[in-house]
Nucleic acid binder design. Sequence first.
DNA 1: CCCGTCCATCGTAGATCCACGATGCATGGC
DNA 2: GCCATGCATCGTGGATCTACGATGGACGGG
Lengths: 117, 117
Amino acid sequence: MAPHLKKVPACGPAPASNEEPDLRPVEGAGADEELALLAKAVGHPARVQILRLLVRRETCICGDIVDELPLAQSTVSQHLKVLKEVGLIRGEIDGPRVGYCIEPRTLRRLKSLIGSL
Amino acid sequence: MAPHLKKVPACGPAPASNEEPDLRPVEGAGADEELALLAKAVGHPARVQILRLLVRRETCICGDIVDELPLAQSTVSQHLKVLKEVGLIRGEIDGPRVGYCIEPRTLRRLKSLIGSL
DNA sequence: CCCGTCCATCGTAGATCCACGATGCATGGC
DNA sequence: GCCATGCATCGTGGATCTACGATGGACGGG
């Protein structure tokens, strides 16, 4: 899986003015489903911790996350997968390591959806 | 179906300037747990719909919620219970009916916690 | 090469969630 | 009193979540 991946300077450090307005609606059946999906992904303390770690450090860390949490490596990997599947974080291969970082677009989207309540 | 719609004061109609600053921190272990709990409660489409219904109508409706959702009455009652347990909504008995309404404090708290990410 | 590191995935057991119908418990009308 | 109504709760299957150790694959150092 994922055969060719070029060397990437991990995640973008500072997207500067990454201010796309996000045209999607914040209400309606689709938005409800989307909000539920994102909220469910945030609905676990370990994943909240991971999100905070990635937000705090501008530089994207990797398996240091495992050291920060009182969980086994496989468990942390699963939580990372959940966050990645809903698009809240992104992982980039960097040699033997993997760097994770926040996906600001999705995080902003979540804030918009919550804000619409 | 039901000759309904009795005039119900139920939940507080207009909280007016209910602008307490909410002194609790938005970070730390406790906040992480709290955010996870609230997010999990929102993490289901039916509960998002319920929240939207209650936010939209200033007047607090009751089992009309059951009519709005494609779910059995007992299932809706369980979802209401989940939302009530985390303090996102409140139910008040009014004769044979129960009026539900948003708890604005908790909703603001959720927005603060999400905003801290 | 061979090996150690880093991470993802598999397999699994126990807990929790989600849906439903059935039942229970009030209240209010007759 | 008696019954209908509105809602909560119980009980129960099936699905999903959460944790772990074990295994596997990719990479880089020796």
